[in-house]
Amino acid sequence: MAKLRTRKHKVVLNRSVGGDAGITTMLVILGIFMLVPMVYAISQSFKPLDELWIFPPHLYVINPTFRNFKDLFVLMNTSWVPFSRYIFNTVLVTVTGTLGNLLFGSMAAYALSKIMFPGRKWIFTTIRTSLMFHKTCTAVSNFILMSALGMVDSYWALIVPAWGHTLGLYLMKQFMETNVNNSVLESARLDGSSEFKTFWVIAMPMVKPAWLTLIIYCFQDLWNAGSSIYIHSEQLKSFHYAINQIVAGGIKRAGASAAASVIMMIVPVMVFVISQSKIIETMGSSGMKD
């Protein structure tokens, strides 16, 4: 079916040259608005000190240098907890939190949208409504609960709540509804496949585009998590927290700070690029639409 969507075919289907031109122009203007600050942020990190304070400032670099990055690494080595530990913390929490959310969230989403058990609508309404409640106010009760469970000041305090992240479930449920065909599931059930197997083998591959969205969202959320009220030990703190601590040194560290924001940015962008290419490729060939 995907074959139908060739360039030639689309022109026949309701497209005008004027419309194409107008849309392209709009995209280009918006794209420039999006790009300029990003380019500026990146070029700041490669500017030598004299260029950082040049008048008027340039968007581009004249003499690119890695000095800011070197300065940043030197600063990193001065911290008494080795920097690799902060990186390990963030990676551990991010990966386990994201995978747990993907697995539990999709499983619950499958059950809520494809298994007709009583109470599912009511449960889903509760889940959706809870998205609107601001986190600051639940922090106190969460803290009390976590200390009762002995989770304060451990990785669990960051990982377990991420598993029940509502947004992941909500996203998966919406995609299960549009992308997963009920008749396919029905025939799998008639063939004697258990619900768990149907979910894993049939439904999950059909919602791959949603995985990407969920993984990216969850990853970025956990990656950017700064200090947390649940963690006091220095050696359990996140990379983001640590990097913010060392670059908060005013003008003297302007270069290192620019380098730090580029490093913080590059990782989620890489995750996005890799998962996008992997998932979108497989999607085209999996024949998810009958």
Binding site: M107, M116, N142
Partner: peptide, 22 residues
């Protein structure tokens, strides 16, 4: 449809603990 409850259980337990109750 008991399997439906089994499938939402891991998520719902965490959800109730860290979202609904607070």
């Amino acid at each position: 449809n008991w399997v439906g409850y089994a499938m939402i259980a891991p998520f719902i337990i965490v959800f109730i603990m860290f979202t609904v109750a607070p």
